[in-house]
């Protein structure tokens, strides 16, 4: 059953990710992105990381992609002036993709992963599912990861100020012609 679910979710994630890349319309791409994010969240559930799964759906699917959708709608750029990537660029990209896939494949079949106990894929459940317990997150964030947690606060503050700076209109905000 779990195997079956995994294949469904993995296919869902990867398939819609591919559609993000392939779809011509940015709105469609954003929709597929949501699906892909939900797929990732489901994989988290399979890995018993329930808290992260919820977070993934809330933050990514709920906030980030919706933000994307807003912007896509706001810009309302009809893809009339479609620019197809140059021939060289496409070839290079495909080569890069093939190389990446090969790399990914070689990592996955890497003999180093095949260590005693791992040659047989360990079934979920032999180790404690530490990620399932939300209080674990709180405990770690406020003990071991206290400092990064605080710094992350500043990171968010800087991002917030940055967004305001870049997008706010000012009284003296006259268009200064750029040099071209």
């Amino acid at each position: 059953m779990v195997d079956f679910l995994f294949y469904i979710f993995a296919t869902l994630t990867l398939g819609s990710a591919a559609m993000v890349v392939l779809s011509r319309n940015p709105v469609n791409a954003a929709m597929f992105l949501i699906v892909s994010m939900v797929g990732v969240a489901s994989l988290f559930v399979l890995l018993s990381a329930f808290f992260l799964a919820v977070l993934q759906v809330l933050v990514y699917a709920g906030a980030v992609v919706v933000l994307f959708l807003f912007v896509v709608m706001l810009l309302d750029e009809e893809d009339k002036r479609r620019v197809s990537p140059g021939k060289l660029n496409s070839v290079a990209s495909v080569v890069a993709l093939v190389l990446l896939l090969l790399g990914a494949f070689s990592i996955v079949i890497s003999p180093d992963l095949v260590v005693p106990g791992m040659a047989e894929p360990r079934t979920l459940g032999t180790t404690e599912a530490v990620g399932a317990n939300p209080s674990e997150y709180g405990y770690h964030l406020f003990t071991t990861y206290m400092l990064p947690f605080q710094v992350a606060g500043f990171l968010l503050l800087v991002a917030m100020i940055g967004v305001i700076l870049v997008s706010r209109k000012y009284r003296d905000d006259s268009e200064v012609p750029a040099r071209s």
Partner: peptide
């Protein structure tokens, strides 16, 4: 983790 968070704080600051 510290490395990543500090690095990203720097990076996001630089975006702005």
């Amino acid at each position: 983790v510290m490395f990543f968070i500090a690095l990203e704080t720097v990076t996001i600051g630089f975006y702005v």
